[in-house]
Design a protein around this nucleic acid. Sequence first.
DNA 1: CACCCGTGGCT
DNA 2: TAGCCAAGGGT
Length: 354
Amino acid sequence: MMRPAAADLLAWYDRHRRALPWRAGPGERPDPYRVWASEIMLQQTTVTAVKPYFERFMARFPTVQALAEAPSEAVMQAWAGLGYYSRARNLHACAIAVVAEHGGRFPDSEEGLRALPGIGAYTAGAVAAIAFDRPAAAVDGNVERVMTRLFAIEDLLPGARPLLRERVLVMMPQDRPGDFAQALMDLGATICTPRNPACGLCPWREPCRARAEGTQESFPRKAAKKAGVTRKGAAFVLLRADGALLLRTRPPKGLLGGMAEVPTSEWRADYELDGAWQDAPVVTRWEQLSPPVRHVFTHFPLELTVFKASAPAGTQAPAGMRFTPLAALGEEPLSGVMVKVLEAAGLYASSKTR
DNA sequence: CACCCGTGGCT
DNA sequence: TAGCCAAGGGT
């Protein structure tokens, strides 16, 4: 069996590379700012979901300087709906650091990039390779799949990651590191897919060990993870007579950090709905809506029962909360679950084009 | 290392 | 349907 050659992958890439908004055309110089921003957005997020956000984000913050100077609320709002909101906070912090500590230019080395907030091993390698053509390994989910299949690596992930980095570096073509990194990802995304991989179209179909054994879909091997326990809670939608909604901002860190929400109870597995009135922000006549809003986070399902009430004009917001006009709701950083709550209360049209 | 951290699309 | 998966990082 022949050993896989980078040249075969690059030849395939030259014919089948995807045209993506953040990707420079053949022979073009990539913009490190756009490469970096796209890599952050693409962390655990699909290309389809990222595209519209990326376009809006670049229109709103065209340069790293513009992003660094923007208020954090504007950054969070531009990110709202994409998920993993610590990425947005770190993205902003990173832009500020690049301007303050690097004169507005991204470091061109893996180590320099790795030291910036929100940039880990993968993203440092990806930006170094793609934006600066450095021979760096960028091992993401795609590359894990491609490499474990190519060499039939039985080791469990994520433990096998260092080994995969070594394999990538050994194969790295010194003349086209950036294209090699992107080619590996394109191969994983379009040919070497998790299910029903198109092995017949793969440039590495001959040397692929897993394909030779017919076991390609069994890779990569992963340790099993346990399911989360459903948490429950109550959400309180209070609409004032002048058309303003009671909102508050979540703490800066942790779940949905820095995002806007209607007041809610705690979210617990043993939450008792009978006592929900004690968690309401004001004492009034609350109407319980049904069915409850369901949402699935990475680690647990959530079931929120929505209560709705109206307040007279002139009502003051309780401490730590604020009234926001419904017309200005689009400027609030609302997470997916809060959009569901407001939809359940009939206050939000699911335009999905915020 | 184990756990936390969103959301949407797929089979 | 329920689970899996996606260009992961921080702690």
